[in-house]
């Protein structure tokens, strides 16, 4: 019996190459695919197309939960809706007060800085996306959103919710995109302690309720972190603009046996009940936009005497 026989193999029964040979071919193709996928490049385009191919299936998986929330919404009683409207009206009033003050603060800030007019918001444009209930990756903090390349979403785009930074776009398809949350164990986010200005990096822990800041030296004169401090994006790292709220410090452990402080924070962003997220585009050349190495170099050059 030939090993790669074309006929008379154990189970082939005269139907072309044996299973062994065919498996060998597919294995080789698989290894080549893996190699190129890891390297990135032209396979990204193939993946983009494949994402579109499986999108209907993902929607099918999502449909029970979508149908459920639709049902739930359609059978909400009038009283419940009225209560919700009242609550939203209250929230709106509170927000309006904040906005009123913000306008005057912006004006004041502009005057203090000697500018003629207040700067516009660093966020230029936003698109709302909805979470598709599909498990994208086992035990990883990833989400599938129903906005993709055709809506202008790009890889590495910041994704936020009303409360704070949620994550960034990890992979796009034409109609959907996969986002990696800041709490994913493979995600690192450059942050700044708002109160003291201390810059560091917040790593995901793999759990949705916790971030860690492992790189803060504890006996360093500038180290100033307290429980309750607000972390905002530092604008470094070329993804997130400066000043988006990220997390609140929950634990600062200055154990004498460790060279670095053990700091934990809880992320502010949660997926709201309606599971909506915001893709944002920053205003180019805004002072709070992401610092590119080129821009930093130019700035450093300008500061030289």
């Amino acid at each position: 019996m030939a090993v790669f026989g074309t006929s008379g193999s154990r189970i082939g029964g005269g139907r072309g190459p044996s299973f062994g040979f065919r498996f060998f071919c597919y294995a080789v193709v698989s290894v080549v695919l893996m190699f190129y996928d890891r390297r990135g490049g032209f396979l990204d385009t193939a993946r983009y197309g494949l994402q579109a191919a499986i999108y209907p299936l993902q929607l099918a998986v999502n449909s029970p939960s979508a149908a459920w929330s639709w049902l739930e919404e359609s059978f909400t009683t009038r009283e419940k809706l009225q209560a919700q409207v009242d609550q939203l009206r209250d929230e709106l009033r509170a927000q309006q007060l904040v906005t009123l003050r913000q306008a005057s603060l912006e004006r004041e800030n502009a005057t203090l800085r000697g500018l003629n007019s207040a700067l516009p918001d660093v966020i230029d444009r936003r698109v709302i996306g909805e979470v598709i209930s599909v498990e994208v990756s086992t035990l990883r903090q990833r989400l599938l959103i129903n906005r993709g390349g055709t809506h202008g979403v790009y890889k590495g785009q910041p994704v936020i919710t009303g409360e704070g930074v949620l994550g960034q776009v990890f992979r796009t398809g034409p109609f959907s995109s996969e986002i990696i949350l800041i709490t994913d164990a493979e995600h690192a986010l450059p942050v700044q302690v708002l109160r003291s200005g201390l810059r560091t990096i917040a790593l995901g822990t793999g759990r949705s309720t916790s971030l860690e800041l492992p790189y803060v030296p504890k006996n360093y004169a500038n180290t100033d972190v307290k429980v309750g401090d607000l972390l905002v994006t530092s604008g470094l790292g070329r993804v997130f603009p400066f000043g988006l709220p990220v997390a609140r410090i929950t634990k600062v452990d200055l154990s004498p046996t460790e060279p670095l402080a053990q700091i934990r924070a809880v992320p502010l962003a949660g997926i709201e009940r309606d599971r909506e997220v915001l893709f944002v585009w920053e205003r180019p050349n805004h002072p709070a936009s992401t610092a590119s190495p080129e821009a930093l170099a130019v700035e450093a050059e300008a500061k030289k005497p």
Partner: peptide
């Protein structure tokens, strides 16, 4: 493709 794993890993 579904799971976002390395292509051809499960294949």
């Amino acid at each position: 493709v579904f799971k976002g794993d390395v292509l051809a890993q499960n294949a």
